[in-house]
Design a binder for these strands. Structure first.
Lengths: 108, 108
DNA sequence: TCTATATTAAACCAATAAGTTAATTAACTG
DNA sequence: CAGTTAATTAACTTATTGGTTTAATATAGA
């Protein structure tokens, strides 16, 4: 559910904004070219995914970023990190070969 | 686009399988309780997102994992990593306080 | 108490996503 | 060549998503 919440660019922009500190719903909505209601719905998606939480302060609901699900994504990526490091190693080995003139460079 | 490709559990399972090595479309489809056509579509989504590539070997299309988009997700997470480390620090500080008997433990 | 502000709820719509079955393309194999 | 296997394309169905507008709820302040 986390990943599908993260799939929308508006929601990612909201998270980026929240990484700089708490903000109310209308503050979060301000930069977007869509209704407040639409942003409110995006916030609910983020909330259900645990990516943000909302407080209550008078008529405002200050939202703040919750790190847990992002950390889980990071953990999930861990399994692949080794994989792409391997690939990187291969690329680096290849680049080293090129340096020595050992292979044709396909980019030339 | 990467994130929405990653949002589907079937597709993530396919990636996990591919992290162990190349596989043909029908090999990839085998563990799933859905038609081959459905899996083929998932593969196309992954391919358009650059998460996999397909070769051709006779009538098979061996698929393999492409690391670049995953690495981009990792880079994207980077901005938040500091944020959740901060939070973790706060938690650790709190835990240390608890150890010293400085605060009530809300879990008791 | 009346009014303005902040937010959510409800009802609706168009586009996309995820699946199906049936038909098509392509390559190997006897 | 005929038949089988691998995969894709096409057409269709259903559910979900992302947006809208209008109405409702809650709080603050004159």
């Amino acid at each position: 559910m986390t990943l599908s919440a993260l799939a929308d660019p508006t929601r990612r922009a909201i998270l980026a904004r929240l990484a700089t500190g708490e903000a109310s719903v209308s503050e979060l909505a301000e930069p977007f070219d869509m209704s407040l209601v639409a942003v409110s719905k995006h916030l609910k998606v983020l909330e259900r995914a645990g990516l943000i939480s909302k407080g209550r302060e008078a008529q405002w609901r200050p939202c703040r970023l919750e790190p847990k699900p992002l950390r889980q994504v990071d953990d999930w990526l861990e399994s692949y990190r080794q994989f792409w490091n391997d690939n990187l190693d291969r690329l680096e080995a290849y680049a080293a070969l090129l340096q020595k003139g050992g292979v044709d460079d396909p980019s030339n």
